[in-house]
């Protein structure tokens, strides 16, 4: 079962998603972190998220690409995947090459389906990065299209999709 959590930057979506996981009945809570720590800001961001999760008994898995390989079958497990925007960027720009929108969409959706089949519940955090009205370069546009498509496809698969606005969940 997939739950999709969508929201802008600093909208409270992580805390909201963590609450969902912590209020669930599953025994094993996995936190699948997709962000790479490659500069001081991402290190700070990761530290902030770690402190948010402290004491909540998460097993942290760091996997910037190929998320389907992260765990073995766990019928009493729930995964919090954070976040889709980093995963898509990591997959798109891996190995120093830029992949096409279509190949990224296919790859990420395939991995999500496989990951979902391994656990009881999968909570996916993704970003609203689509509303600044700026026209970006071709590569960024390709990335935006891929993420937009992936978000929409996950929403179709999901049992529940929630947009988080100023910390408040709005059902979609």
């Amino acid at each position: 079962m997939i739950t999709l959590i969508y929201g802008g930057s600093s909208s409270g979506k992580s805390a909201y998603a963590e609450d969902i996981v912590c209020n669930s009945q599953y025994k094993n809570r996995y936190y699948l972190a997709t962000m790479k720590a490659n500069d001081s800001e991402s290190v700070e961001r990761i530290a902030r998220h770690r402190s948010l999760r402290e004491g909540k008994e998460f097993i942290t898995l760091e996997q910037p690409v190929d998320i389907a390989n992260t765990i073995n079958q766990d019928s009493d497990g729930i995964i919090l995947l954070e976040c889709m925007s980093n995963l898509v960027a990591n997959e798109m720009f891996r190995d120093g090459q830029i992949k096409s929108e279509k190949s990224i969409v296919d790859k990420v959706l395939k991995d999500i389906k496989e990951l979902e089949s391994k656990v009881s519940s999968l909570v996916i955090v993704t970003n609203d990065i689509f509303e600044d009205g700026i026209s970006y370069d071709d590569t960024t546009k390709e990335y935006l299209r891929a993420l937009g498509k992936i978000n929409a496809e996950i929403a179709k698969m999901a049992a529940r999709s929630v947009e988080v606005v100023v910390g408040i969940g709005v059902e979609r």
């Binding site: 802008g8 930057s9 609203d128 509303e131 700026i134 970006y136 606005v165």
Partner: peptide, 8 residues
């Protein structure tokens, strides 16, 4: 305004 809904 909500200002967080864009590219970094």
């Amino acid at each position: 305004d909500e200002i967080g809904n864009g590219i970094v």
